[in-house]
């Protein structure tokens, strides 16, 4: 019982110490008077701005807009990545034809797709979804492919002996056996998607966290920009952590260890 409390305490300390230290340094720098308040907004001001943005609902609207883009883009890109990874992993022929192009394409930094996508799609909602989907696609596809390749041959023999159809093979063997890899892909894809949405909104949007920051920059409201930065970081962190938890849960086949 006390062990658990102590453990929670340790984890909380480890988690909270760095940000608290950061805030302390930040506060100290502000008080030193070497930076004008307009450039380096004191923590308290950022906090008040944050409360204000929450209260007038602006933050929530922007978060919702970014969130739904991420979900749609991530679902499309991640789904396509999953299917591609499985297909490439299962079919020698497909891999022979597509393997090389795939390897070349994944070398393109995902930001670099921006200009091309803008030319093709303009800067509407479609563009943002596309660039997020693209960012989610590669980590998902690559990790899934790794997972499928790592399915032990021994298990495939079992599938062959019982004459699994292709669908049975995927459902009963390939997906569960590669699940730890797929979840890693999912986590990377989700955090890339989140980074991309903020990036895309920075230069082409009328709503969203990225847009809020860009607009505030133009208005020289550094406090709002900082709220955006912190919020982006925290949301990204939470997404990553929750998927890590799920990953840990599935990385061993010991459901609720006895």
């Amino acid at each position: 019982m006390f062990g658990i409390i102590r453990k929670i305490g340790t984890v909380a300390l480890r988690l909270l110490a760095p940000p608290l230290l950061l805030i302390a340094v930040w506060e100290a720098l502000c008080r030193s008077g070497r930076f004008p308040d307009a450039v380096l907004v004191p923590p308290e001001q950022v906090y008040l701005t944050f409360i204000g943005l929450v209260q007038d609902g602006e933050l929530w609207d922007n978060l919702k807009a970014s969130g739904s883009r991420v979900l749609i883009g991530f679902a499309i890109g991640g789904g396509a990545g999953l299917v591609t990874g499985i297909a490439l992993g299962l079919s020698r022929t497909l891999e022979r034809y597509l393997g090389l192009s795939f390897t070349v394409l994944r070398q393109v930094p995902f930001i670099a797709w921006g200009p091309l996508l803008i030319i093709v799609m303009g800067i509407g909602e479609g563009f943002k979804i596309a660039i997020i989907a693209n960012a989610a696609f590669f980590p998902m596809a690559l990790n899934t492919l790794d997972g499928v390749r790592n399915v032990p041959r021994n298990y495939r023999d079992v599938a062959a002996i019982f004459q699994f159809s292709r669908w049975s093979l995927i459902r009963r063997l390939i997906v569960p056996a590669s699940l730890p890899f797929i979840l890693t892909g999912l986590r990377l894809a989700l955090s890339r998607s989140w980074m991309m949405v903020v990036g895309a909104e920075l230069f082409a949007s009328t709503i969203g966290i990225g847009h809020m920051m860009d607009w505030a920059r133009e208005m020289f409201q550094i406090d709002v920009v900082m709220v955006g930065v912190l919020l982006t970081g925290i949301v990204g962190f939470l997404l990553d952590q929750s998927l890590r938890l799920i990953e840990a849960r599935f990385s061993t086949w010991k459901p609720r260890a006895a």
């Binding site: 023999d157 079992v158 063997l173």
Partner: peptide, 13 residues
């Protein structure tokens, strides 16, 4: 039918 030398049960089932 074939019974393998190792059991080859799927660990997730």
């Amino acid at each position: 039918g074939l019974i393998f030398q190792d059991h080859r049960l799927f660990p997730w089932l």
